[in-house]
Computed example of a mutant assay.
Amino acid sequence: MISIHPAREGDAAILTAIGLRAWENATSAIGVTEELRDNARHAFGNFAQSSWQSITVAALDGAFVGWAARENFDNQISDFWIDPSYQRRGIGAVLLQDIERQIIGRGFETAKLESHAQNDQAVSFFRKHGYGVSWLSLKYSVKLDRDVQSIGLQKQLVETVRDSYGFGF
């Protein structure tokens, strides 16, 4: 059974491990050096330790299998990681639904996120769940020593109701 709950302060190690495995899977298309892997490990660890209040955990039969975060408690999904061995089991869909509920609960009408554009699995997942491309950019990554495409995705969560039609005359 899939359950969703807020992270706790002591969860950093398992969240770091899940995030790193999912990140390695997601970045396989662009290539990763050992230095980047170490940087990612430290970044995940620091984030999970210092920002655990912004993290929502997905568990399957009590075992942590994924997590998502809204680092600034706004409508930007800053992190969304499902352990690769648990992907394609509906866990991401349940987690995303809860994150979207949180965003609506904070008064936002849209959800936003970004990824590297070559992360086909993530882009496909979010598009399947109603997200559309809002921007695409190409910028040089010093760490990778190459240009990397980034993609912004957005979903309208709350229908806006207009008082009138046309130009509002």
Rank of each mutant, 00 (worst) to 15 (best):
residue 13 A to R: 11
residue 168 G to I: 07
residue 44 F to P: 09
residue 51 S to P: 10
residue 122 A to Y: 03
residue 10 G to L: 04
residue 121 Q to R: 08
residue 52 W to M: 02
residue 43 A to H: 15
residue 72 N to T: 15
residue 62 G to L: 05
residue 56 T to L: 11
residue 83 D to F: 10
residue 19 G to K: 07
residue 52 W to A: 00
residue 16 T to C: 14
residue 71 E to K: 15
residue 38 D to M: 13
residue 8 R to E: 13
residue 61 D to W: 03
residue 121 Q to V: 08
residue 94 V to I: 10
residue 92 G to I: 03
residue 106 R to A: 10
residue 87 Q to T: 05
residue 8 R to I: 08
residue 104 I to V: 14
residue 29 A to I: 11
residue 14 I to N: 09
residue 82 I to K: 04
residue 103 I to N: 05
residue 121 Q to I: 05
residue 40 A to P: 06
residue 35 E to P: 06
residue 93 A to K: 06
residue 112 K to D: 15
residue 149 Q to Y: 08
residue 149 Q to M: 12
residue 38 D to K: 15
residue 34 E to G: 14
residue 85 S to P: 00
residue 70 R to S: 08
residue 141 S to I: 00
residue 153 L to R: 02
residue 50 S to Y: 11
residue 44 F to M: 14
residue 9 E to T: 09
residue 100 E to T: 03
residue 69 A to L: 05
residue 90 G to L: 11
residue 79 D to N: 14
residue 162 R to D: 09
residue 160 T to C: 05
residue 18 I to E: 05
residue 49 Q to M: 14
residue 89 R to M: 06
residue 47 F to A: 02
residue 4 I to T: 01
residue 48 A to E: 01
residue 139 K to V: 04
residue 141 S to W: 00
residue 105 G to Q: 11
residue 36 L to H: 06
residue 41 R to F: 15
residue 65 V to Y: 02
residue 112 K to Y: 14
residue 169 F to D: 04
residue 23 W to Q: 13
residue 72 N to M: 14
residue 103 I to E: 04
residue 120 D to F: 10
residue 14 I to P: 04
residue 54 S to C: 08
residue 9 E to N: 12
residue 92 G to R: 04
residue 89 R to S: 01
residue 9 E to L: 09
residue 120 D to P: 09
residue 159 E to G: 10
residue 14 I to V: 15
residue 10 G to K: 10
residue 95 L to S: 13
residue 62 G to N: 05
residue 90 G to H: 12
residue 8 R to S: 12
residue 28 S to L: 08
residue 107 G to Y: 13
residue 145 D to T: 00
residue 20 L to Y: 14
residue 17 A to I: 14
residue 46 N to I: 09
residue 84 P to T: 03
residue 140 Y to I: 10
residue 33 T to V: 00
residue 79 D to C: 11
residue 43 A to P: 13
residue 99 I to D: 01
